[in-house]
Computed example of a mutant assay.
Amino acid sequence: MRTKLLLLTGLLISISHWASSQDIVLLTKEAENFERQLKEPEALAKYKQILLQEPANIKYLVRATELEIAIGNREKDANNKRLYFESALSYAERALKADSNSADAHYAMASASGKMTDLDIENKKIVAYVKAVKDHADKALVVQPNHARANYTLGKWHYEMVTLSGIKKAAVKLFYGGLPNGDLDKAILYMEKCRALEPYFVTNQLDLAKAYKENRQPAKAIEILERLVKMPNRSFNDIALKAEGAKLLASLQ
């Protein structure tokens, strides 16, 4: 009797695991379909459902981080923007806790930390997040040198350290004891590597063009922007980014 009970329990557990895995496959397909339709909030909701079943799944924690950032970027209300960016940071922290040697997790932390610097927070926190961006992007590239988006994130850090203005620049100068060693040539190097690895990543293309413009290489910026405006939309924000690129292109011609 005991043996039969154990066998039945084992069978029920197996069926439960099988059903759970089937649910995750279905949810993943639904999330990916929503992303292809540029329906990011709906895709994020599906990834959140997956994470209820697999709370330490780095792939979906990182994707949730990216989508929280993407949606937060276009929020006009400051409080709503803060909620999205804080949620992104929370998912990134969970990914890093799940695997501290994951390049994806460090990239997610760098990306989310960068967005936190855009919020109205105290100067010490701004500087801490500025440091976190570089630290985590560096760590991601130690683990995986060809991580496209970590290369972009580090390139963007260098670009921003050269072009910082206003309150953020004052805060960084004060608490760093001067501006960190941002370098436009390094910004371009990292973003060019990202472009080679992920050529349809519109965000990188636009920032790379800006870096070339800042570096007094308008011909290079124009070349990139001419390609950028013809790219397919792979995220909802690509529409606005390409429109911004078109305006920048017009100003350079």
Rank of each mutant, 00 (worst) to 15 (best):
A128T: 12
A31H: 02
A132C: 09
L8G: 09
Y129L: 09
E66Q: 11
A187M: 08
E68R: 07
S100D: 14
V25T: 15
R82A: 06
P232H: 05
T203D: 09
A112Q: 00
N123K: 14
P145W: 02
L208R: 00
E68M: 12
L154V: 09
I15S: 11
I167L: 13
C194S: 15
A110C: 03
F201L: 06
L89N: 02
T163S: 13
R149H: 10
V62Q: 04
V142W: 10
A171H: 03
N233Y: 10
Q205K: 12
S102K: 01
K169Q: 12
A137S: 03
G10V: 05
T9A: 15
I13P: 05
D104L: 01
Q217P: 00
L38C: 08
Q37F: 09
I224H: 00
G114D: 00
K242L: 02
R74Y: 13
P145I: 09
R216N: 14
N73R: 14
G155I: 01
L27I: 10
L11G: 11
K220V: 05
I222N: 06
M161H: 01
A98S: 06
A78M: 12
R94F: 02
A92P: 01
L38V: 04
A112L: 01
L52E: 15
I167F: 14
P41C: 12
L67V: 11
E223P: 02
L44Q: 04
D135A: 14
N151V: 05
I15D: 13
V62C: 04
T28I: 08
H136C: 02
A140N: 05
S165E: 12
R195P: 06
D120I: 10
L89W: 03
I50A: 00
K134E: 15
F236Y: 12
T153K: 15
G182L: 04
P55R: 05
K210D: 02
F201W: 03
A70M: 08
V142K: 14
C194G: 11
W157S: 06
K134Q: 09
I126P: 01
N215M: 03
L89I: 04
A196E: 13
K139V: 03
K97Y: 11
E42A: 11
A103D: 08
R82L: 06
M116G: 02
F236I: 13
N101Y: 12
A171M: 05
K230T: 06
L154N: 05
H17T: 14
I15T: 11
I69Y: 01
G178D: 04
V62M: 02
P232M: 08
L119P: 05
G178I: 06
K193I: 03
K76E: 15
K97H: 14
I126V: 14
S113A: 14
T117E: 07
S111D: 07
L208Y: 03
Y129W: 05
H147T: 04
G155S: 13
I239G: 04
L119I: 02
